[in-house]
Amino acid sequence: MSALRSRRGTAAANLTAVVVFLLFVFPVYWMVSTAFKPAGDIRTFDVSLFPTTVTLENFRTAIGADGFWRFMRNSLIVSAAVTFLAVLVALLAATAVARFRFRGRRTYLLMILVVQMVPLEALVIPMYLTLRDADLLNVLPVLVATYMAFVLPFTVWTLRGFVAALPVELEEAAMIDGASRWGAFWRITFPLMGPGLVATSVFAFIQAWNEFILALTLMERQNQTLPVWLGTFKTAQGTDWGGLMAGSTLYAIPVVIFAVLLQGRIAGGAAAGAVKG
């Protein structure tokens, strides 16, 4: 009786899981499947859930559009550089606030939280004015620097949880065995931080990858990134929906690959990061 109920419960749970999956996946499916539809089948009154004719035309258009690879290259460089630098700097800071109690620690953490409240859109003109006065507009490394401004606080905040979650005892034991503090950290704690570092990297990468308005206004064409490139499909003659969806798909692929590869670690790491402090 109880077993039966439990089996029914499991079936219901599995069914719910499938429904949840479909709900979350449907918009993504719609984007990707549209990318494979020929122009005449896309925005139509007669909606078809599955492509009746499959074409790669939209992907050809997208990849051929206005220097796709240049934008892709810029995006990869900027996002990778931001991720690397932010995680590196945040690792130091996170270790400090998670491992030590020091005067100003509370103020520091408060600052990290508060600066995340500033909307990026409001900072465009101030950043623009600053860079204009310094004559640093349209320099790709400067874009990296501006992204650091909003990626770094979140990265410190997340990473500090990961560091705090790691037992300090192993490190201390190594130190008792004669290792230097640095050696102990490097050999004992750092390897254990893998999941946390990876998860934080994904967060940082996604944020940098998706930024639009700074790339648009602070950079010129040759230094702009993929979110700006997506605008290629909106012309004076109207929107090329197939191209836009193919472009969006291409644009999402690196993030999906990055995230899926590291899937398990994201979840585990995020929890640790959130729970411990």
Binding site: A13, A17, F21, F24, I206, S248, V255
Partner: peptide, 29 residues
């Protein structure tokens, strides 16, 4: 609550939603 297979399925759906660029997601919605 669910088994490993179902859990991976849900996690995959979540990840795809998360990785979609917000502009594209909003356009699709």
């Amino acid at each position: 609550r669910v088994g490993k297979g179902m859990r991976l399925l849900v996690a995959a759906g979540l990840l795809l939603a998360w990785a979609t660029p917000p502009v594209s997601a909003a356009t699709v919605f």
